[in-house]
């Protein structure tokens, strides 16, 4: 293969350092409650895509589905060095579940010609389904090499070290393929000033559902295959007893644990 045509998926999520909330009305994410940032694992996905591009030549296209303000996350990826972006934005997508999200992302990826590799984060910090990359492989009919801690491309073959709670699994497949990366894959680069300036001029194509040939009635909260019956914030955990260690801290803990029948 001469050069690589890489698609990298990114998602804007509520910052895990801020208080995250669900809305009272329809139990969807309260996007105004928390700061919105590019999900950290996506920065690693972008980094891995850029490393592959630097090694093999080619192009990195960012694909993101989300409301208008997701452009901030997209710009971040472009300022790191991605070449262009596709932003899927449509009011009808509000409240879509993972099934609908995977279908919309697959449609958008199909609009990009000659894709060799789709790179994604293994699991978003908000939904934590951890299955979108596998679901894209299912929809696109591509091999899935997910939860990678190491990715290698040689010729037309991609090899991955998959790391999960089961241990390490070595995987190999022919391109095109879907890869998802885990925490240990790399350290993402910081955008340079030059990168930030250049990102402003990089092309971002905005696609609505009409552009993807998707009927708005097939997506969104009303068409989701699952529904939330109720949601409630857990009552905050109160602070219990706190003591200063007077040389008997360990003993005091054991006494507490014994009273709770924990030892």
């Amino acid at each position: 293969m001469e050069t690589m045509n890489i698609v990298v998926l990114i998602k804007q999520v509520p910052d895990t350092w801020s208080e995250r909330k669900l809305t009272d009305t329809d139990h969807t994410l309260d996007r105004d409650a928390a700061d919105a940032v590019i999900d950290e694992i996506n920065e690693r996905a972008v980094e891995e895509a850029l490393l592959l591009k630097e090694a093999h030549g080619g192009k990195v296209t960012v694909v993101s589905m989300g409301p208008d303000r997701a452009t901030d996350a997209i710009r971040k990826a472009l300022s790191m060095g991605a070449d262009e972006a596709v932003h899927i934005s449509d009011a009808a997508l509000h409240g879509s579940d993972t099934i609908q999200t995977a279908k919309v992302l697959a449609s958008a990826i199909r609009t990009i010609e000659g894709v060799d590799l789709v790179v994604a984060g293994n699991e978003a910090t908000d939904g934590r389904a951890g299955a979108i990359p596998a679901m894209l492989a299912e929809l696109l009919g591509l091999p899935q090499l997910t939860h990678a801690r190491r990715v290698e491309v040689e010729g037309t073959e991609v090899r991955v070290e998959r790391e999960t709670e089961d241990g390490i699994t070595h995987l190999a497949a022919e391109l095109p393929a879907v890869v998802s990366v885990g925490e240990k894959i790399n350290e993402p680069r910081y955008p340079s000033f030059k990168g930030i300036m250049a990102a402003k001029k990089k092309p971002v194509t905005t696609l609505g559902l009409g552009d993807l040939g998707i009927d708005p009635s097939e997506v969104g909260l009303a068409a989701a295959f699952t529904s939330v019956v109720e949601s409630a914030p857990k009552p905050p955990r109160g602070a219990g007893e706190r003591v200063e260690d007077q040389g008997d801290g360990g003993v005091r803990i054991v006494e507490y644990l014994a009273a709770q029948k924990l030892v």
Binding site: V243, D245, G250, R252, I253
Partner: peptide, 16 residues
């Protein structure tokens, strides 16, 4: 925390 000790973990934990 249901029970907290303000202190040095290197003395509290071994004692515990």
């Amino acid at each position: 925390a249901d029970f907290g000790v303000v202190g040095d973990l290197f003395t509290v934990a071994p004692q515990l």
